[in-house]
Computed example of a mutant assay.
Amino acid sequence: MNATGPSSAQVTVELSDCSAQDAAAVFDVLRTAFPQASPADGPGSAAVPPPDADGGATVWTETFDIVGAGREVPEGGAGTLTRPVSADVQGGYLAVDQLRTFLASVFAVSGEGAAFGDQEKDVHLCLANR
């Protein structure tokens, strides 16, 4: 992948340890600022069996085009989370940084780890209400 090509502006966001309501709150805020790479009606999900079945969980996934700095969330547009949400964000260095900065303008964000590659990075964040 070329760092200056269109794919360097795409960021995949995976949310776990949360309800569909919390995933929608996060993704709705992101949709106000960034277009989706593949638009959907609601949060896309890669569903794994429910926790009581085989210890699996649901992971909510969407991919966004980060073509510039995120626009501001309209007044009252920030969702409220019922509990902290784990977010894994993967994409080009600049795009991931822009998305993280935007999330920090809406939620309390703490970084819990990162993996750095040649042209991409993967950051694990915890999102909570401010």
Rank of each mutant, 00 (worst) to 15 (best):
L94H: 06
A23N: 13
T101Y: 03
D88H: 13
L103A: 14
Q10R: 13
P6A: 14
Q10W: 13
D52G: 10
T61V: 15
A33H: 09
L127K: 05
E120R: 11
G117I: 04
A20I: 13
M1T: 03
V13T: 13
T63W: 00
S7G: 01
L30C: 08
G55H: 05
L127C: 04
P74H: 01
S7R: 08
P50L: 06
A24V: 01
G77S: 00
A46H: 13
V13E: 04
N2C: 00
S16F: 03
Q21L: 02
V96K: 00
A104I: 02
A78N: 09
R130D: 06
F27T: 10
P84E: 01
F64Y: 15
C18F: 07
V26R: 06
I66P: 12
A47R: 15
T63Y: 00
A53L: 12
Q21P: 01
V109I: 15
R83W: 08
E72C: 04
S16P: 00
T12G: 07
F27Y: 02
T4R: 03
V26M: 02
T82L: 07
A23H: 11
T63L: 00
L125P: 05
G56W: 06
A69F: 03
F107Q: 09
S45R: 10
G91C: 07
D22A: 05
A37P: 03
V89Y: 01
P84Q: 01
G44C: 10
T101L: 12
G55Q: 08
R71G: 15
T12V: 13
Q36L: 12
Q36G: 05
A114G: 08
A87Q: 11
W60M: 07
L103W: 06
F107G: 08
A115H: 07
A23M: 10
D122I: 12
D17G: 11
D17I: 00
A87W: 04
A9I: 04
V123P: 01
A9F: 07
G56T: 14
A37Y: 09
P74Q: 00
G70Q: 08
G91H: 04
S45H: 11
L125Y: 07
E62Q: 12
A115W: 05
V73H: 07
A9C: 11
L127I: 10
Q36A: 15
S38Q: 10
G77E: 03
G70N: 09
S110N: 14
S19R: 02
G92I: 07
T63K: 03
A114E: 14
S19K: 00
